[in-house]
Computed example of a mutant assay.
Amino acid sequence: MTVSWNTRVLHTKSPFGIARWTHSEYPRTFVHFEHGGVTGRGEAAPNAFYGENRATVEAALPPLSAHLHDPWDWEALEAALSRTFPHGHPSVKCALEMAALEACALEAGLPVWKLLGLSSKAVPESSYTISIAELPEMERQAREATAQGYRILKVKLGTDRDVPILETLRAAAPQATLRVDANAAWTRSQAKRMLAVLEACGVELLEQPLPAADLEGHAELRRVSPLPLVADESLHDRSTVPALARAFDAVNLKIAKLGGPLQALHTARTARALGMNVMIGCMIESSLGISASVHLAGLADWVDLDGALLLADDPYEGLEWQGGQVTRPTQAGWGVRERA
């Protein structure tokens, strides 16, 4: 039994901009867990908003990976990871949980979704993200995406140009379903002013309009919004879901920030119990990390799993895409392989 890892810097095809920052390089750490003749794999996709980066991942892996023994004892692994670091390092915990789950699935000869007893129904169609850039560039992104068969566009906002951006993209992609993500950049008054624009442009949903801690503001906005509000930055772990249910209509579940696929599964079930809708989302990740979310995606009302599609140098392959429609893997494990 051995645990090893390596870090690679992945690059997006073009700079990826949101309200907080624009990046082109994404360090991702890949974990390999050899046990009983099989190798389970996981990916750590750190995000600075949640206090992680390459250095924190590489520092946390030695003490956390020491707890990866019996891949079948998922509860013990979760408890040990939480004891070591009660808070923080969710992407590292995610990578280790992914590796344990794939080791079990490979031993059983099953895809992970089947090992977990999840639904075989078709994965909802994914959105494709139009990131913040100069307006002609965003328009180009939208036209190119729709020409490639993507029928749902997720538009990043949170600028002083939000109205012309949205109106331009609606004109550029008149048949596309639009979703908007402000990444916590709006004030309460901005958000209220934007509601009419969103409705006029036929936007389907609004993700995280206000700062993460402003649950009161989100609850107030929800009361007047014609669109469902989806929590992303406000969601930290499943214990925060009951408070979010009073301010949002749905939660966006990302395994890299929740601590792994099992943690996302627990969070989805809590959200459902509270009457919330569920989105399965992602970071900028390779197809290894995305595949883990695809295995869970039958649980979702909406899917945003384009992270690997935005990469110029995805080190994994095997997911089958037709536009925004991905096919759930049927091979044992995660169903992806490293590129030769």
Rank of each mutant, 00 (worst) to 15 (best):
V3E: 07
V9I: 15
H11V: 06
T12M: 01
P15Y: 07
P15V: 14
I18S: 05
I18L: 03
W21F: 13
W21S: 15
W21M: 13
E25G: 03
F33M: 07
H35A: 12
H35Y: 13
G36W: 05
V38H: 04
A45Q: 02
N47E: 11
N47Y: 13
N53R: 12
T56C: 03
L64Q: 09
H69I: 15
P71T: 09
A76E: 13
L77C: 01
E78I: 05
A79P: 03
A79V: 12
A80W: 00
L81A: 06
R83Y: 08
F85V: 15
P86Y: 10
K93H: 03
K93L: 06
L96W: 08
A100I: 08
A103N: 09
A103F: 08
A105R: 05
E107F: 00
G109P: 02
P111G: 04
L118Y: 07
S119C: 14
P124T: 12
P124Q: 00
L135E: 11
E139C: 09
R140F: 02
E144G: 12
A145G: 05
T146W: 00
Q148I: 02
R151M: 11
L153G: 03
T159A: 08
D160N: 13
D162G: 08
V163F: 00
I165L: 10
L166T: 10
A173F: 09
P174G: 01
P174N: 01
A176E: 09
N183A: 07
W186G: 04
R188W: 04
R193D: 13
R193P: 00
R193M: 06
L195R: 04
A200K: 15
G202E: 08
A212Y: 05
A213S: 15
H218M: 08
H218P: 08
E220V: 15
E220H: 12
L221H: 08
R222Q: 15
R223T: 15
L229I: 09
D232K: 06
S234C: 05
A243L: 11
A245Y: 04
A245H: 03
R246H: 14
I255D: 10
L258F: 05
G259F: 02
Q263S: 14
R269M: 11
T270G: 00
L274H: 08
M276G: 12
I280C: 10
G281D: 09
L288K: 09
L288T: 13
S291R: 01
A297P: 05
G298N: 02
V303E: 07
V303H: 05
L309W: 01
L311H: 03
P315V: 02
Y316T: 10
G318A: 05
G323C: 07
G323P: 04
V326C: 06
T327D: 05
Q331G: 14
G333E: 02
W334Q: 09
W334M: 04
R339N: 12
A340D: 13
A340M: 11
